[in-house]
Amino acid sequence: MYAVTTVDPRLFSSTPDLDLVERHRYGDAEAFEEVYSRFAALVYNLCLRMSGSPEEAEDLTQEIFLRIHRNLGRFNGKSSLKTWIYRITLNYCRSKLSVKKHRYPTAPLAEETEEGGVHLTDPSRGPEERTLAQDAARHVSLALRQVKPKFREAVVLRDIEGMSYDEIADILGVRIGTVRSRIARGRDRLRIILEKTALEKTAP
């Protein structure tokens, strides 16, 4: 099915990313499997945080990997493969979410995950600590869905993915000042929502 070559493409690649890309270009199916195993969790979690639904995150992830597979051969190494995949993921999520005028579901994420993804549990946490953490996580996840997508993606990249402002600016294709502003507005919106939720919980 694939083109046969007698030259090992790895001889020409200068970085691990480009090595994978070259192997993919030469029809090495394992190269894409490697890309998948390296980035599946990243893409899925990003989709999950952007869409707020495990089912939708799964659909989005499938579509995104289809696009990655189709376009991997065109990756030129100007950015890291991870940045490139982040860009594809966010662009695709953004287009889908804007088309759908995404609704803000209210079903708790913890329940939804029983059908969808699986928690990567921190084994160092005790059962009580885990319950509290899950409760807090549920509230934050719900609140996150109520933040505008452009602020949400900045917050997700910064606080969940742990990226620097420079990296976020590179991925989103905006200036650092814009990144700073979007992160702030996203966080502030979350703060207001969570404070309101806390007040409602304590109200008689």
Binding site: A41, T61, D159
Partner: peptide
């Protein structure tokens, strides 16, 4: 808020994905 976000557990993709 930031602390809660940073402690959000990562989800493993569904095994059938």
């Amino acid at each position: 808020v930031v602390s809660n976000l940073r402690h959000l557990e990562r989800m493993a993709p569904p095994p059938t994905l």
